[in-house]
């Protein structure tokens, strides 16, 4: 069994991003970048399957600027076997990413593709579902449990009312939710080892994919700031304010 995991380089989750003054985007100069947290969960899940003897090879793929190699190296340090970077400076929207991933999947023929359910930069929550659609594969989105069977995978999904379990025929695609696992910390020797693992670099044109954006971003701005209110001294005062000032209880 071969697993492909997709990892995205995003602004670190601890950074509070700001819109650029001219409204063309967000400030990313000198900002800490990390692997998208949901993608760390995806890598962890693949590595655990390999450790359990259920997977033979894990390929980590990222798409974007040359610095995405760092993100792939992190995945390799976590336990992935080799990496692929589809390198481009162009803006990549989810549909373009799904098309590029489809081209790579068709070359690599994995049995399972695992991605994060959403990236914490564009918050789109689309790429996995789009890739599954383009491949004609079943999708187990927002997974909190993944159980491999014989030619099938059972995925327990976080849905609005609780949990739902679906059975998917392999090859299949899974997107991760927060409760799937807790990603490991990468140890230094593994970071050193990861540097020696193979990393192939491709271009979108090599894959024959048109990555032109379908959405034009006209403007990026910060929403109006919510002002801090007052501190109350007691529970009684709080109830009084809610009753007689805010009129909400």
């Amino acid at each position: 069994m071969k697993i492909l995991v997709a990892v995205k380089r995003v602004v670190d989750y601890n950074v509070k991003v700001r819109a650029k003054a001219d409204g063309t985007g967000v400030e990313t100069a000198n900002v800490k970048m990390s692997m998208n947290p949901f993608d760390e969960i995806a890598v962890e899940e693949a590595v655990r399957m390999q450790e359990a003897g259920k997977a033979q090879e894990i390929v980590a793929i990222s798409l974007g600027v040359a610095a995405c190699q760092d993100t792939i190296r992190t995945a390799l340090a976590m336990g992935a076997d080799r990496g692929i970077l589809v390198e481009t400076d162009a803006e990549l929207q989810p549909l373009a990413v799904a098309k590029l991933l489809k081209a790579v999947v068709e070359k690599e023929n994995p049995d399972l593709v695992i991605l994060g359910k959403q990236a914490i930069d564009d918050d789109a929550n689309q790429t996995g579902q789009m890739l599954a659609a383009l491949l004609g594969w079943p999708q187990g989105t927002f997974a909190s449990k993944v159980e491999l069977g014989d030619g099938t995978v059972n995925v327990t999904r976080e849905i609005d009312g609780g949990l739902e379990t679906v059975a998917l025929k392999l090859p299949a695609l899974v997107t991760t939710d927060l409760r799937l696992n807790e990603p490991r910390f990468v140890k230094l020797p593994n970071i050193m080892k990861a540097k020696k693992k193979p990393l192939e670099v491709l271009k979108p044109a090599d894959l024959g994919v048109d990555v032109a954006p379908r959405l034009v971003t006209l403007k990026v701005q910060e929403p109006p700031k919510r002002q801090a209110g007052i501190k109350v001294g007691s529970v009684a005062e709080l109830v009084d304010k809610l009753r007689n000032e805010a009129h909400v209880i």
């Binding site: 549909l95 799904a98 689309q126 579902q129 789009m130 383009l134 989105t141 954006p213 379908r214």
Partner: peptide, 18 residues
């Protein structure tokens, strides 16, 4: 959760952004 599960799949099949 249901809408986000379905609509990207629809969009990709239509070859449109979501």
């Amino acid at each position: 959760a249901a809408g986000k599960n379905l609509l990207p799949r629809v969009a990709a099949l239509l070859d449109v952004a979501q």
